[in-house]
Amino acid sequence: MADSYQEYEGRPRRRGGRRVLIGFVVLILVLGGLLVVADRLAVGFAERAIADQVRQEVAKQQVQASGPDVKVGGFPFLTQVVNGRYEAISIVLTDLSGNVEGKAVSLPKLDIDARNVKASMDTLRTGQGEVVAESVKGTGTITYDSVTKLIDRKGIKLAGQDGKLTVTGPVQLPVVGEMTVHGTANLAVQKGQVVIKFERLTADGLPNIPLVQGAISTYAKQLSINVPLPPLPFGLKVQEVRPLPEGLAVTAAAQNVPLRSSAG
């Protein structure tokens, strides 16, 4: 009888223990949820603060752009705040434009990826101090329409095909009259500009006559241009250009870049 009573007395205690355990788990989940909310609120604050500072730096460089749209990567974020070091910050600028000797090609969109960014919480809060990225990479695309406007030759069409920049267009040739020529370009980067150079153009049925070949060579030189890009923010220097179906993709990079100077 005593054994039965002890067994009966033990059951409520086990149920009470389960309730405590469940309550503890719920508390942990609630605290975890609050931490996640706090983490995301802190991210939003940092993104707005960095966007304001980037906007000021872009304006200082006499570059016009819409945005920026800033996203801070890495989780949890609060540990990055404590350390004053952020894994990755992406910055998107749209409608980037500037002036290079009276003309420049605008970039519809410039994606900037900043890595290992150093910024104290006081800097983000007050707007005073430095925000420095260990490395910055920018990618954007120059539309073919904007390049053909610079070439300024009637009927010219540019395209990216099999990793090559191709051109087709009508040309008036001596002896044979108008013909549609086609060819590919050599692409290079020189002094921050994209260099497009057409060395050899041809056409179906083109006669091998020195006078005609000379006219074709002259026309190729007329199509060859340097594409002036707007000044890129954060000291970005163009390093590579590649033809894609949608346009010329440019890649720029810089090291130890101040996203904001200490002078404010």
Rank of each mutant, 00 (worst) to 15 (best):
P233Y: 06
D3Y: 01
L201R: 06
K191Q: 14
D95E: 14
I216F: 02
A249H: 13
Q6C: 05
V238W: 03
Q222H: 02
A59V: 05
Q62K: 15
Q161G: 05
A119E: 02
I209A: 04
T143E: 09
R40Q: 15
Q6T: 03
V70T: 03
S106N: 14
G17S: 14
Q255I: 08
E134Y: 01
R125V: 13
T94C: 13
K191H: 13
D52L: 08
N256D: 14
T251Y: 00
D52V: 05
E101P: 11
S97K: 14
I50P: 07
F77Y: 15
R18H: 13
V25F: 00
T251S: 03
P233H: 10
L34Y: 11
G155R: 15
Q64S: 14
L229A: 09
D3W: 00
A51T: 12
L206F: 09
T126V: 12
I156A: 05
Q239V: 10
A215C: 09
T143Q: 10
L27Y: 00
S66T: 15
A104Q: 02
R125P: 07
G183A: 08
L96A: 09
P231R: 06
Q161M: 02
V132M: 09
D122W: 11
S4I: 03
K157Y: 10
G205C: 12
V147Y: 00
T218F: 00
R15E: 03
E246F: 09
V238I: 07
L124G: 07
S135M: 07
G67T: 11
R125Q: 12
S262N: 12
V100M: 00
G67P: 00
T123E: 01
E47D: 14
A215L: 02
G140I: 10
E87N: 06
K71V: 15
S261H: 12
Q255L: 11
T251L: 01
K157T: 10
V189Q: 01
L206G: 08
V117Q: 04
T184R: 07
K103V: 12
D111W: 10
S4V: 04
